[in-house]
Amino acid sequence: MREDESVPPRSRQAARLRPLLTAAALATVCLITAGCGDDGTGRAEPRPGTAAPSGAPSSAPAGTASASKSPSPAPTSGKPLPRGPLTGRTVVIDPGHNPRNRDHTREINSQVDIGTGRKECDTTGTATDAGYPEARFTLDVSRRLRTLLEAEGAKVVLTQDDDRPFGPCIDERARIGNEAGADAVVSVHADGSAVGNRGFHMILPAAVRGGAADTAEIVAASRDLGERIAGNFVRVTGSAPSNYVGGNTGLDTREDLGGLNLSTVPKVFIECGNMRDPKDAALLTSADWRQKAALGIAEGIGSYLKR
């Protein structure tokens, strides 16, 4: 579930996939635009009127919170990185939410500036009906993704590694990628929508300018990154694009997410599946499938960075 889904999203554009630049990606674009694999594993993202996320935080209290008073981002594994095709590249992985956010509802409900307005610091995320939390899913996939990227020589930073009491807030999540000078940032999520809503989708930044937000320099690069991840995700996992977001393209452009608005480096969100749909939940709770999800994302990032 994305960072601030408790606030109804504003304008959403269904984006059409441009042809991807690599031969492997080109082969997968046809799958996405044709809505291939309707029985594939997907994910979904809650929309107004859909099932509410588990443990959603209460309304925000008066006052504001500073996201700068929190611990530093999680470092890489600490082991010397092998030389590989991604040597010299920096990737920031943003595991959505935090397993302990639900114990800090006052803090995560405090408002932060996202450039075009104010939003909650963070949310608790959703969970499967059996109680498997989105925050645990995002951490697992992000750690697997880190291992894969480091094996290719990339420097990887996690915005959190279950090493802090809550958060980080959405503005700090953006700032971590910016300050790292990341070549790519991917925020990992899963959805909490209605039963029957299935299929993954990428969330891409819209052209936004206001306050501290100005995405003009990252819109095109972020779209390229998102398209490449989408193509590789289809190929590796067999998942289909969302059947209820993005017009069957697997892409959704948003202007109301602080994690994208405040980014100055290429960044996308990926919603990996709908935790409230039984078929998707069975995939999201499978360690084997989570490894495939991490691999699909890693290969998409690699395709983007090697272009």
Results as ranks from 00 to 15, higher is better:
residue 209 R to Q: 15
residue 142 S to M: 08
residue 241 P to T: 13
residue 56 A to K: 07
residue 68 S to I: 02
residue 207 A to C: 10
residue 71 P to L: 10
residue 78 G to F: 10
residue 118 R to V: 11
residue 241 P to M: 05
residue 7 V to N: 06
residue 109 N to F: 05
residue 59 S to F: 14
residue 33 T to G: 04
residue 36 C to N: 08
residue 153 G to Q: 11
residue 58 S to V: 13
residue 22 T to H: 07
residue 122 D to Q: 01
residue 133 P to R: 15
residue 111 Q to T: 07
residue 234 V to L: 10
residue 303 S to P: 07
residue 221 A to W: 02
residue 71 P to R: 06
residue 110 S to N: 13
residue 148 L to T: 05
residue 282 A to S: 12
residue 221 A to P: 01
residue 176 I to E: 04
residue 157 V to F: 10
residue 248 N to E: 15
residue 254 R to H: 10
residue 181 G to D: 04
residue 276 R to N: 12
residue 248 N to V: 10
residue 61 P to H: 08
residue 43 R to Y: 15
residue 182 A to P: 12
residue 135 A to M: 09
residue 189 H to M: 03
residue 70 S to G: 04
residue 304 Y to C: 02
residue 46 P to T: 08
residue 245 V to L: 07
residue 145 L to D: 03
residue 162 D to V: 07
residue 224 D to L: 11
residue 19 P to T: 00
residue 64 T to Q: 14
residue 41 T to Q: 14
residue 272 C to I: 05
residue 214 D to F: 02
residue 294 A to D: 06
residue 29 V to F: 09
residue 108 I to P: 05
residue 222 S to H: 03
residue 253 T to E: 14
residue 246 G to V: 12
residue 128 T to L: 05
residue 250 G to K: 07
residue 233 F to S: 03
residue 261 N to I: 09
residue 235 R to K: 13
residue 79 K to F: 14
residue 91 V to F: 02
residue 78 G to A: 15
residue 215 T to W: 15
residue 297 I to D: 02
residue 162 D to R: 04
residue 91 V to P: 02
residue 236 V to D: 13
residue 266 P to G: 02
residue 285 T to Y: 04
residue 75 P to L: 09
residue 140 D to N: 08
residue 193 S to K: 00
residue 278 P to E: 03
residue 191 D to A: 14
residue 165 P to F: 00
residue 157 V to D: 02
residue 106 R to V: 03
residue 119 K to D: 01
residue 172 E to R: 15
residue 33 T to L: 03
residue 227 E to V: 15
residue 140 D to H: 15
residue 200 F to E: 04
residue 294 A to E: 07
residue 170 I to A: 00
residue 108 I to G: 01
residue 140 D to Q: 07
residue 73 P to A: 07
residue 205 P to D: 01
residue 273 G to A: 03
residue 109 N to V: 01
residue 17 L to R: 14
residue 293 A to E: 06
residue 125 G to L: 00
residue 208 V to F: 10
residue 62 A to L: 07
residue 82 P to R: 13
residue 299 E to K: 13
residue 126 T to S: 06
residue 284 L to Q: 02
residue 265 V to Q: 05
residue 226 G to M: 03
residue 209 R to K: 12
residue 251 L to H: 11
residue 105 T to V: 15
residue 300 G to C: 05
residue 11 S to C: 08
residue 90 T to L: 04
residue 119 K to R: 12
residue 306 K to G: 10
residue 241 P to E: 08
residue 278 P to W: 05
residue 302 G to I: 09
residue 36 C to L: 12
residue 29 V to M: 07
residue 198 R to N: 13
residue 3 E to H: 12
residue 16 R to M: 10
residue 227 E to W: 15
residue 46 P to Q: 08
residue 272 C to K: 01
residue 130 A to S: 13
residue 70 S to Q: 00
residue 219 V to W: 12
residue 5 E to S: 11
residue 13 Q to L: 12
residue 300 G to H: 02
residue 116 T to Y: 00
residue 76 T to F: 12
residue 241 P to R: 13
residue 296 G to Q: 07
residue 117 G to A: 03
residue 59 S to P: 09
residue 106 R to F: 04
residue 174 A to I: 09
residue 149 L to H: 09
residue 277 D to I: 14
residue 214 D to I: 08
residue 83 R to I: 09
residue 92 V to K: 14
residue 66 S to W: 07
residue 243 N to I: 02
residue 171 D to P: 02
